[in-house]
C-alpha cells in the first residue's frame, strides 16, 4: 500500500476513536501514543488517562519515539500505539517477562517509514525550524523552504533503519489501524556508516570508534530510550565493583557502549532510537545494526518477531558455534 496523507488521517481518526473507547469502557488504564511536539516536524509521547486527551493523538511520518520503552515503568493495563518496529520491542519485552501480553492493548500502526529530519536538514542546508513544510505523497517527499520547493526520494530522507525495516506492519496487535504496508525495501542504502566501516582495516575501525566516543557526554540517552535496556540497576551505576569510571572519559565511554550492545544482543530490534537521540551524533546504529546482523548470521535469530520464541541468550542448540571453541 502506498502512502497517502488521506489514508494517514483515516488511521489517526480511527486511533482517536479506539483510544477514547478503550478508556471509556475501562479496558485500559492509560493510553501511550503521540501528540504534536512543541518543535516543528516533531511529535512527543502522550501518556494519558484522560479521554479528552485522546483527541490530541496523531499519526504522521514524525512519530519517532519507540513507546514500548515506557511499558516496564507504567502500571496497569495499557493501550499502546505501536509501529512495526515498536511492536517487535513489545514482543521482546513480553518474551523477557517484562510486560504481560494480557495487560496490553496494542493499537497497531502499519508504518510506511519515518522521515529523518536531520537528513532533510542536511539536504536543504537549513535547520529544522527554518524548514516550512515536509510532506509525503506516495514515495515522494516534498520539502518547502519559503518559496523554494524540493522533492526527495524515500531513500534520501527516511531513517536508515526504516529503509531496512523488515516488519512495517506489526505482527502482534489487538487492532490494526490501517491496511498492512510493505517494507520500503532499500536495505542496501540503509547501512549508513556500517558499509564504510566494513571496508576499513581492524585498526582503522577501532580508531574510528575511539574518535567518535571522545565526544560522548555519558548522558545515557541511548540507554534510557532503549526498550531493551530495562535493568533496574545498570552496570555503569555499580560502585562495588566499579566496572568503569562514571564520567565521560574516552576509553570508558567506548567500553560502556560495547557492553551495552552486548547486553542487548538478541533484544535490540534495530529501531534506531539510540542513534536518533544521541545529542552528539555518534553513529550508534553502526553498532546496533552490526549486532543485529551477527545474531541473525550466527543463530538465525531476529528479535521480537513472535511472542513464543525463547529469548536468544536463554536458549541454545546442542550443535552450534562449535567452530568458536578450540
Amino acid at each position: 500500500m502506498s502512502y497517502s496523507a488521506a489514508k494517514n488521517s483515516q488511521m489517526q481518526k480511527k486511533l482517536r476513536q479506539e483510544a477514547k473507547a478503550l478508556l471509556e469502557q475501562g479496558k485500559v488504564d492509560c493510553i501511550i501514543g503521540y501528540e504534536p511536539g512543541s518543535l516543528k516536524h516533531a511529535t512527543t509521547p502522550l501518556i494519558t488517562k484522560d479521554k479528552a486527551a485522546t483527541e490530541r493523538l496523531v499519526i504522521n511520518p514524525f512519530i519517532v519515539n519507540n513507546l514500548s520503552n515506557f511499558l516496564p515503568y507504567t502500571k496497569g493495563r495499557i493501550g499502546i500505539v505501536a509501529k512495526g518496529c515498536d511492536s517487535r520491542s513489545i514482543v521482546s519485552l513480553i518474551q523477557d517477562n517484562k510486560v504481560k501480553r494480557e495487560d496490553l492493548f496494542i493499537l497497531g500502526v502499519p508504518c510506511s517509514g519515518l522521515i529523518d529530519v536531520s537528513k532533510v536538514e542536511a539536504l536543504v542546508g537549513k535547520y529544522r525550524d527554518e524548514i516550512d513544510d515536509i510532506s509525503r505523497q506516495g514515495d515522494i517527499i516534498t520539502v518547502k523552504v519559503g518559496a523554494a520547493k524540493k522533492e526527495f526520494s524515500l531513500s534520501q530522507v527516511m531513517f536508515d533503519n526504516c529503509l531496512a525495516c523488515e516488519l512495517p506492519t506489526p505482527a502482534e496487535y489487538d487492532v490494526l489501524l490501517g491496511e498492512p504496508t510493505s517494507p520500503i525495501g532499500a536495505a542496501a542504502e540503509s547501512a549508513g556508516k556500517l558499509d564504510e566501516l566494513k571496508a576499513m582495516t581492524a585498526a582503522q575501525r577501532w580508531a574510528f570508534w575511539q574518535n567518535e566516543f571522545r565526544r560522548c557526554t555519558r548522558c545515557y540517552a541511548c540507554r534510557n530510550v532503549c526498550p531493551a535496556c530495562y535493568c533496574k540497576r545498570c552496570f555503569v551505576d555499580e560502585t562495588e565493583p566499579q566496572w568503569l569510571a562514571p564520567m565521560p572519559q574516552e576509553p570508558d565511554n567506548l567500553m560502556f557502549q560495547i557492553i551495552r550492545n552486548l547486553h542487548v544482543s538478541g533484544r535490540c530490534t534495530d529501531c534506531g532510537e539510540c542513534e536518533r537521540t544521541c545529542p552528539v551524533n555518534i553513529p550508534l546504529r553502526a553498532l546496533t545494526r552490526d549486532m543485529y546482523d551477527i545474531v541473525d548470521e550466527l543463530f538465525e535469530f531476529k528479535s521480537g518477531m513472535d511472542t513464543k520464541t525463547q529469548p536468544l541468550l536463554t536458549a541454545y542448540e546442542v550443535d552450534e558455534a562449535e567452530d568458536l571453541v578450540k
Binding site: L298, A315, V325
Partner: peptide, 27 residues
C-alpha cells in the same frame, strides 16, 4: 551452551569494532 552463544556474539562483535578476535579464546 549458554556461554557459547554469548561468547560467539562477543567475539564477533568485538571483531567488527576492530579487536583481533584471537584475543578472546574459548575452550
Amino acid at each position: 551452551y549458554r556461554a557459547r552463544r554469548r561468547l560467539a556474539i562477543t567475539r564477533k562483535f568485538l571483531e567488527g569494532m576492530g579487536v583481533d578476535p584471537r584475543r578472546l579464546r574459548a575452550t
